[in-house]
Simulated assay, not measured.
Amino acid sequence: MKKFRIKSFCKINLTLKVFKRFKTNYHNIESLITFCNLYDVITVRKIKGLSDKIKFSGKFKNKINKKSNTITKVLHLLRERNFFKDQAFKIDIQKNIPHGSGLGGGSSNAASLLNFFNSKMDLKINKTLLNKIARQIGFDVPINLEKKNTLLTNKEGKILRLNNKFRLNILIVYPNIICSTRKIFTRNKKFTLSKSQSNYYTKNKKKLINFLKKERNDLEEIVVKFYPKVGKIIDFIRLQNDCYFSRITGSGSACIGIFSNQKSAVSAKKLIRSKFPNHWCFVSKTI
């Protein structure tokens, strides 16, 4: 049977502000999110039988729960709503995005699979329901339904899609530390008290960079407290030539550096590999 190949892109939190914690223990956050050309590869095909065959491969396949993950949750929720009848799938996921890094690999996998099933199997799921199913899988999953620069507002997770392109030169460094999102958010004590004026919508790259340089990730302090190595990486990236700023993405542990040009980002990558030979590095351009 025909095999389909899907690219599942990673997300980058350029900024992340935590405003307050609700009684439900969920947090009210605001984040400017972009995507870059780092992606997992998912292959899907129909198979006979009643059981799905799901396989993870690649550099970052380890420590993923094989019985309960975002892929199994997508299949379960679609079957629960009777979108599939007696149909099993063979799904292979090549994990190129580090697991537990704050790069949203699992959420992206779920969103990519939802979009695939909806379009290729003609499920006719409207946007509202698609977002509802995505949210049931995970908080970040709806963000990944569209590969656009995105503002996650501090209004109960409302998502605003931005049409302007950022095209930032980015270096990603993953120190092989799996961060628990739940643990980091629960232990976080740093909150943004008031909403500042944003330049998310500017098409002037200089203004955008100047704005981003003044921003932060509120979770960085607690991540560095638990994992001091992350702080050393951030500082090292920041000191490299032509680096505008460096911080963690999401709840960590991946660190990002935004550079004025790709050549400097590549040079920084070489220096980091020399100083931290066991760390994984990647250079790309954001959308």
Rank of each mutant, 00 (worst) to 15 (best):
A110I: 01
K214D: 00
A111M: 08
S119Q: 13
K189T: 13
D140F: 02
L193E: 15
Q94S: 11
V173G: 06
I133G: 03
N164I: 11
P142N: 07
L113K: 02
I137D: 01
K120V: 05
A88T: 00
F83W: 05
G157L: 06
E215Y: 00
C179L: 12
I209L: 05
N118P: 01
Y174I: 12
L129H: 11
Q87P: 14
L114D: 00
I184H: 01
N82P: 14
F84V: 07
D122R: 14
N149G: 05
I133S: 04
K203H: 09
K183H: 09
K189F: 11
L152G: 01
I170Q: 04
F84S: 11
K165W: 07
I91Y: 01
L114S: 02
S108H: 07
T153S: 13
N210Q: 11
K127C: 13
L103C: 11
K205Q: 15
N199K: 12
E146F: 09
N169T: 05
Y174D: 13
K124V: 04
N169E: 08
S108D: 06
I209A: 02
N163E: 14
N115P: 02
N163S: 14
N109W: 02
I133Y: 04
P175M: 12
K214G: 02
V141S: 06
I170C: 07
F116A: 10
I178F: 14
F191S: 09
I159L: 13
M121Q: 13
K206R: 12
A111Y: 02
V141L: 08
N126P: 11
T150V: 00
Q136H: 14
S112F: 03
E156N: 15
E156D: 15
K203C: 10
K189M: 12
R167E: 15
L193S: 15
L130N: 03
I177T: 06
K124H: 11
H99C: 07
T128N: 14
E215T: 01
N131A: 08
K95V: 07
F84Q: 12
D92N: 03
C179V: 15
K190L: 10
S101A: 14
L171G: 04
K207Y: 08
L152H: 03
F191N: 07
N126E: 12
L113C: 09
I159W: 10
N118F: 00
R182A: 13
L162V: 05
S107E: 02
F191V: 13
I97V: 09
R182F: 12
N204M: 10
S196A: 00
L129T: 14
S119R: 13
I172N: 03
G100K: 01
G138P: 04
F116P: 08
G138N: 07
L103F: 10
F166I: 07
N96L: 08
N164F: 03
K127A: 15
R167I: 13
T153G: 11
D86R: 08
I209M: 03
K147C: 07
K147H: 09
K189H: 13
F211P: 02
K155A: 10
T186H: 14
N163C: 05
K155I: 14
F83Q: 04
N169F: 01
I178C: 10
Q87I: 14
F83R: 03
